[in-house]
């Protein structure tokens, strides 16, 4: 009897711990999202390109933090066996190369086009005349060079 009573008490304690962990993670996720949104609103009024880039960096870090909390606690990965964690996390390290290589490639392609493709360069400097209309969105006159490749 005493044994089962002990087990019950243990179970209760585990239960309370699990619930408080869920509450804690919920609050963390909400706060991180709110910070992201505040940064997003703040960024709207900022013209400085380097400051915007810095804020974007912070937002990406917050995004990774949210991902960590969802995977570790909601998906329970943190409480799994270490071997299991490794078979999930190690393959995902491919993303480090994946993101770096492809964004670098994109940037390099832009440089190449700006250097050697006068049409591409010109197209990105011609401003389109805006005609505001209440319904059907903004219609605009497309500069003749910008319509087709």
């Amino acid at each position: 009897m005493s044994h089962s009573h002990n087990a019950d008490a243990n179970h209760e304690a585990n239960n309370a711990a699990a619930i408080s962990e869920i509450k804690k993670v919920t609050i963390i996720l909400s706060v991180l999202t709110l910070i992201e949104l505040v940064l997003g609103f703040w960024m709207m009024g900022i013209a400085s390109e380097s400051l915007r880039l810095a804020i974007k960096g912070v937002i990406v870090i917050l995004m990774m933090a949210k991902a960590f909390y969802i995977v570790a606690y909601f998906m329970h990965l943190k409480h799994e066996v270490k071997n299991l964690i490794m078979t999930i996390i190690v393959p995902l390290l491919l993303f480090v190369w994946f993101i770096g290589a492809f964004l670098w490639d994109g940037g390099s392609f832009r440089n190449l086009r700006n250097s050697y493709d006068p049409y591409f360069k010109a197209q990105s400097t011609i401003k389109v005349e805006k005609k505001e209309s209440k319904h059907g969105g903004t219609t605009h006159e497309v500069a003749p060079a910008a319509e087709k490749h």
Binding site: T87, I88, P91, L92, L94, F95, F98, I99, F102, L103, D105, G106, G107, F109, R110, R113, N114, F120, K121, Q123, S124
Partner: peptide, 25 residues
């Protein structure tokens, strides 16, 4: 393991978005 493969699918989508955005003025 299915979710890991799905993560790569979405990752590929989002990275191609990033690549195209980085290659555009």
């Amino acid at each position: 393991y299915f979710l890991m493969s799905d993560a790569f699918t979405f990752g590929a989508f989002l990275i191609s978005y990033g690549t195209v955005r980085f290659s555009t003025n």
